[in-house]
Design a protein around this nucleic acid. Structure first.
Lengths: 345, 345
DNA sequence: TTGTACGCGTTATCAT
DNA sequence: ATGATAACGCGTACAA
C-alpha cells in the first residue's frame, strides 16, 4: 500500500520531464500562445520578446512534443516503409534513400519488415498506418485492391511494381539492358540465355521482355530458362541447363542467381568469362567480391527510395497520387570481369 | 476568397478521417469512456455492450490514434535506432533484430542514419528522441558524456561499445577467436598476422587482444599489421606486408579487409588457402561470394539488435540501465574455404 | 457497470 | 503584438 509499491515507476523516471511551452512562457514572462507563435511562426512577434523566448527555450532544452502537435494537426512527420526482407541487399539502398529524403524534409522514417505471407504484410501495414503520414511498400505481395484500400487512408507509394491509381516507382530496365546487349554484341555473342526469376514476378517478366526486344534489335537469339528461386543455390542448379542451352552469355534475373551459377561453372572448370559470360541484375553489395567481379545491370535503388519518399511528400502537398513517376530512374550497366569475348568455337 | 482557395486541401483529403472512440460510442449507443474501457481494459464491461462496441469498432475499422495516446501516456511505443551507415552489412542484421524484437512487443522501429560527423549524430539523436521511447546507438561516435546526457531524457542502449552507466550490447569475441585459433593450430599454423582496423576502434583492439591471448595459449606467434581503413581497397594494399610478415594465416579486422586482401593475393598467384589462410571478422553478407568462400568469425548481429531493443524495453519496465548484458552473445567461427593446412616449407 | 469531467501539449481562433 | 480559450483523441479518477 505504500507509495513504493510501484517500484517500476521510480526506476524509470529519475528522468526529468521534457520542458513545455508553458515552462518557457513562465520563464520568459509571456503567455504560452506567444511562445507557440514565436517558435512556429517567427516574425509575427516583437524582436525583443522573440529573443527572450528563444533564450528560454534553449535554456530549458525545449523541443516540441510531436504527439501533441500530431494530435492537433493530424500530421506525424513520419513516413512508413515496409519491406519483405531487410537483409535483402536490394533493399537497404532503398531504405537509405527513403531515410535520407525523409530526413532532408525533417521527416522520420519508420521501418517494418514482414517475413511471411501477404497476411503479415497487411497486418504490418495496418499497424503502421495510424502513426505515419504515408506508406511506402517496397515489395508488396498485396492485391491491388488491398493497396488501394490502404491508399484511402494515407498516401501510398509502391516500389518495383505497378498498381493502378497508385504512385509507383519503377526503374526503366531498357537502358541497362540495351547497354548490356550492345556490350555483348560488341564482344561477338549471338546467343543469350536468360535465367528467369519467379514465375509470378512482374519484374522478372519485364526484364525478359526487355532482353527479348534488345536482342531482336541486335539480331541475336535469346532463350529463357526457368529457375526455382532467386537464390545462389538455385543459380548453381542452373549450370547444366545453361551449358546445354548453347548460349555463350547468360543474364540472370538477379545477382544471387548469377553468382551461384558462376561459382558452379567455375567449380566445373568452365572459364568465366573465357568460356561463358555472366551478367546479373541489381548490382548488389558484394557483386565485386567474386572472382571475376560480376558484371551487373544496376538500378539506382537509393534514388528509388528517395523518389518514393518524395512521392509521399508531394501527395501530402496536394499532388494527385496516380502519377507513375519513373522518369529519371533508369538502369545502367556496371562492367566488371565476368563478361568477355565470345569464345572461338 | 472562395472556398476553393486552398486547393491543396482538397487534393489530399478525399481521404476519410479515421474513426474515433466517439464514432464508436455513437454507433454503439454508449459513452466514449465506455468504449475506451472496452478496448483497453477488457473484462470490466458487460459482455453484451462489449460485444456491441467491438462490433462497431470493427465496422468503422477503428484503430487508436497513437498521437492521442502518446500525449496522454507519454509513451509512443516507438524505439529509435541510429546507425552510421545503413548500407554497412554489419548493420542490417542489427536493424532486423531490433525491428523484429520491437514488433514482437508491438513497438515500432524508427530508423535514422548519420553519415557524417559526431555532430550530425547528435543532431539526429536530438531530432529523434522526443518521438521515441528509447534510443539504440549502433555505432556511436559520441562522447560518453553526450551519451549519458541523452540517457537522462530517454532510455539509451549502445551496441558494440562500452559506456559507463549505459546498457551496452557487445558480443564476446573470445569464443570465436578461440575456435579460430584452435582451428588454425589444428592445421599446423604457428605464426598468425592480424590486419588491424582503425587505430581508434575499440572493437579492433578487443579483437587483437583476444587473438594475442588465444595464440599465446596455443604457443603460437602473432603479429599486428596496421591498415589504413576497413575497406576492400585497403585490404588489397596489405598484401605485401602480409607476405613479408612470415605468417601463414591472416586474420583481418573485418571481412572487407579480408576479401580485398584475398583478391590481391590470388591476383598475385598466391594460393588461398594453399599458400596462406585468410579469416575475417563479422561474417558479412557476401562472405560466401568469394572463391574460396571466406572463413569468418561471426557475431550474431541479429541477436545484438534484439537484445538492444529488449534492453530498451526492460529499462522502460523499470530495470536499471547500467547493466552490461553481453551474456549469451558470443562470436563463433564460420568455416569456409579460405583456411587450410599450413603449407610445407 | 457506465457516464461525467478533466488534462496531456500544441496550434488556431478569437479577443484585447 | 499579445493574451485567453477551444480543440485535437484518449485514458482515468470520480460520481452515479
Amino acid at each position: 500500500m505504500s507509495e513504493n509499491d510501484r517500484g517500476t515507476v521510480n526506476a524509470v523516471s529519475p528522468r526529468k520531464p521534457a520542458a513545455t511551452i508553458y515552462d518557457i512562457a513562465q520563464l520568459a514572462g509571456v503567455n504560452a500562445s506567444t511562445v507557440s507563435r514565436a517558435l512556429s511562426t517567427p516574425g509575427r512577434i516583437s524582436a525583443k520578446t522573440e529573443q527572450k523566448i528563444h533564450a528560454a527555450a534553449k535554456e530549458l532544452n525545449y523541443r516540441v512534443n510531436p504527439a501533441a502537435r500530431a494530435l492537433l494537426t493530424g500530421r506525424t512527420r513520419t513516413i512508413g516503409l515496409i519491406v519483405a526482407d531487410i537483409t535483402n541487399p536490394v533493399f537497404f539502398d532503398i531504405v537509405r534513400g527513403a531515410e535520407r529524403e525523409a530526413a532532408e524534409h525533417d521527416y522520420t522514417l519508420v521501418l517494418a519488415e514482414f517475413r511471411e505471407s501477404a497476411e503479415t504484410e497487411m497486418f504490418t501495414a495496418r499497424r503502421l498506418i495510424p502513426s505515419v503520414d504515408g506508406l511506402i511498400l517496397a515489395t508488396s505481395r498485396l492485391e491491388p485492391d488491398e493497396i488501394r484500400g490502404l491508399a484511402e487512408e494515407k498516401p501510398v507509394v509502391v516500389i518495383n511494381r505497378e498498381v493502378e491509381d497508385i504512385t509507383s516507382i519503377v526503374a526503366d530496365v531498357a537502358p541497362g539492358v540495351d547497354q548490356a546487349i550492345t556490350h555483348l554484341a560488341g564482344l561477338g555473342h549471338t546467343r543469350i540465355a536468360y535465367v528467369a526469376g519467379p514465375q509470378r514476378s512482374w519484374v522478372s517478366h519485364k526484364r525478359w521482355e526487355s532482353i527479348l526486344a534488345a536482342t531482336a534489335r541486335s539480331g541475336m537469339e535469346a532463350v529463357e530458362l526457368p529457375s526455382e528461386q532467386p537464390v545462389m543455390q538455385a543459380g548453381r542448379a542452373m549450370a547444366p541447363a545453361v551449358l546445354s542451352s548453347g548460349a555463350t552469355a547468360v543474364i540472370a534475373y538477379n545477382d544471387l542467381l548469377a553468382i551461384g551459377l558462376m561459382q558452379e561453372l567455375i567449380g566445373r572448370s568452365v572459364s568465366v568469362p573465357g568460356d561463358i559470360s555472366i551478367l546479373g541484375f541489381d548490382n548488389i553489395f558484394g557483386a565485386d567480391f567474386t572472382t571475376p567481379g560480376l558484371t551487373s545491370i544496376g538500378s539506382p535503388h537509393t534514388e528509388a527510395g528517395m523518389y518514393a519518399a518524395r512521392g509521399i511528400l508531394s501527395i501530402l502537398d496536394g499532388a494527385p497520387s496516380d502519377q507513375t513517376s519513373h522518369e529519371a530512374l533508369v538502369t545502367s550497366l556496371v562492367l566488371r570481369g565476368s563478361t568477355g569475348p565470345r569464345p572461338a568455337v
